[in-house]
Amino acid sequence: MNGKTLLVAVAIALAAGVAAWWWWADDERAIRKQLAVIEEAAAKVENEPPVEGLVKATQLAALFSDPCRLTVEAARHEGTYTRKQIQERIVLVRASFVQVAVTLHDTVIERIEDKNAAVRGTIRLRGKATGDPIADVQEFKAKMAKIDGKWLFTAVTVIEVLER
């Protein structure tokens, strides 16, 4: 093997490495972009126009696969819901708040392989209903799948950190 061949081999290996990294990074970027939608679309300001609320609920529901498995460990609840059912529930929950802010923290994409990913993080909600301010923090884990080019939640579990 002469010097020129070696150089070409190294260049190809390098290009393959960069491409692999780019693909991986691209998926991670896409997943994080979807997670950012949760913060944006869940947020509600006082006197939010109803149409805007509906648009945001639709945006949030579009993050879930149809159907999607939802588990709430603390409530011992597990069920499979259609996107429409999820959207209706989101509309109801958002309507119960006068103002709300949702933030995600410590979000880790645990693995991405073969159009499937596992995500874990902490979700924090601070809001105001009719009375006192409301604050809640929950840990979640989720399974995501790349469906028609979009990363969607296929299963979401709200983890019970404190078991009463």
């Binding site: 923290h105 410590d106 993080g121 902490t122 924090r124 923090v137 929950q138 979640f140 950190v161």
Partner: peptide, 11 residues
């Protein structure tokens, strides 16, 4: 201090 998924938010 009790952690959730990480240490940014703790109880």
């Amino acid at each position: 201090a009790i952690r959730f998924a990480g240490q940014r938010i703790m109880l």
